[in-house]
Design a protein around this nucleic acid. Structure first.
Lengths: 208, 208
DNA sequence: CCACTAGTGCGACAACTGTTGCTTTAAGAT
DNA sequence: ATCTTAAAGCAACAGTTGTCGCACTAGTGG
């Protein structure tokens, strides 16, 4: 295809290439913070990064490419899900984090979601990031199973989705006013359903 | 502000104005169906509608205005939530409808969601449509309460959100592969939590 | 039937977006 | 130090998007 879009410091990891990438990505985040996704243009990013337009076009192609790179960089952190000692506590804390990240204006996650609708590459990067996050969150369910809070055959992913989806739905899709106890409400509901065995896997004999 | 964008046949409800509005909205839906939201341009809509570009710009301003008008038109139907005789059945049928509308390619609802991120006016229209839909769906909860399936102080909206949010989350935001029994799974979970009283309103004494 | 005018068609234009060929800079190797 | 070449700068260009003034068409009212 074409050369890797995300910096690809394979051939020349030298200072300039990396420096310019950092400048540009910083500029993207700053622009996103100031004008939101709507106001994010290649022109403005290049100007703020102190880099020529052509450079940005050549390395990232379009706005979606820029966002994809930002998303990939976001997945390289060491974030870990909260560990409060109980399933309900973990889910509530997790939802609190999600809630806060979605209500600050302007919200970077919101902008990234918006971008994923305009660019296939941003959508792919977004999907990778979601997958990574939910994967890490499965630890919450594993710990709950170890503590005996949940039956051992509980499917982690649907449970996590049930807990977090209402937040995204209300704040991203429906755009209702931020409800202070929405996070706890959704977490509690999911925990309750899980304890009742709502997420037990259908086929128990899935061993080796 | 400015003259009403959605046709506004106040002053001259004559045949041509209405005819052109219909042509343009049809063209929007057709373009949306063929090229998705990405490929929706004012130029193409005008051409397909057999109308001059300037006319479309003047009456709808931008793509968001077009979508907003389509959304408003969509809310004028006589849709009613399914009535199967049980809460779980109703929610499952409802989720089935949502599921189907989101997995067909290209999906109009998906495109409208995407549009709502680009245009404030489309976002407003989208919000009106969601509100209308969830309002109508509250009948599901009311019937369940009347049947004695749910406690009388059950909050309808959070319950409906809990039931439907996982679908939107997976199919619109996460874009995972369509899961055939995802609709039933989410509906069942929500129904179970509701029966357990997870959506009981906190303050019982809110009467006159 | 005729006059009025909201709404549409038309063409020209400015602004913006993205591309291309070439030159210049600087990282990495000899 | 100097050579090589990947990557950035630069300027000119084509295509697209949105705007404006004016002419004209066709509902609306007398």
């Amino acid at each position: 295809m074409n050369p890797p879009p995300n910096g690809a410091p394979d051939r020349r990891p030298g200072g300039r290439t990396a420096r310019i990438r950092a400048q540009v990505l910083d500029a993207v985040r700053a622009e996103l913070g100031e004008h939101g996704y709507e106001g994010l243009t290649m022109e403005a990013v290049a100007a703020r990064a102190g880099v020529h337009r052509t450079t940005v076009y050549r390395r990232w192609q379009d706005v979606g490419g820029l966002l994809a790179d930002v998303l990939d960089a976001a997945g390289e952190d060491d974030w870990a899900p909260p560990d409060t000692g109980s399933l309900r506590g973990d889910l509530t804390a997790l939802n609190g984090e999600i809630h806060d990240s979605l209500v600050v204006r302007p919200s970077i996650p919101q902008a990234l979601v918006a971008a994923s609708f305009r660019s296939a590459r941003a959508a792919d990067a977004q999907q990778r990031l979601w997958e990574d996050r939910y994967q890490r969150c499965e630890a919450i369910v594993e710990r709950a199973v170890e503590r005996g809070e949940l039956p051992p055959d509980t499917a982690a992913r649907p449970l996590l989705i049930a807990a977090t989806a209402p937040l995204y739905h209300q704040l991203v899709l429906l755009r209702t006013a931020p409800d202070p106890h929405l996070a706890a409400q959704a977490a509690t509901t999911a925990a309750l359903a899980a304890t009742a065995g709502a997420f037990a896997r259908p086929a128990p004999g899935d061993g080796p």
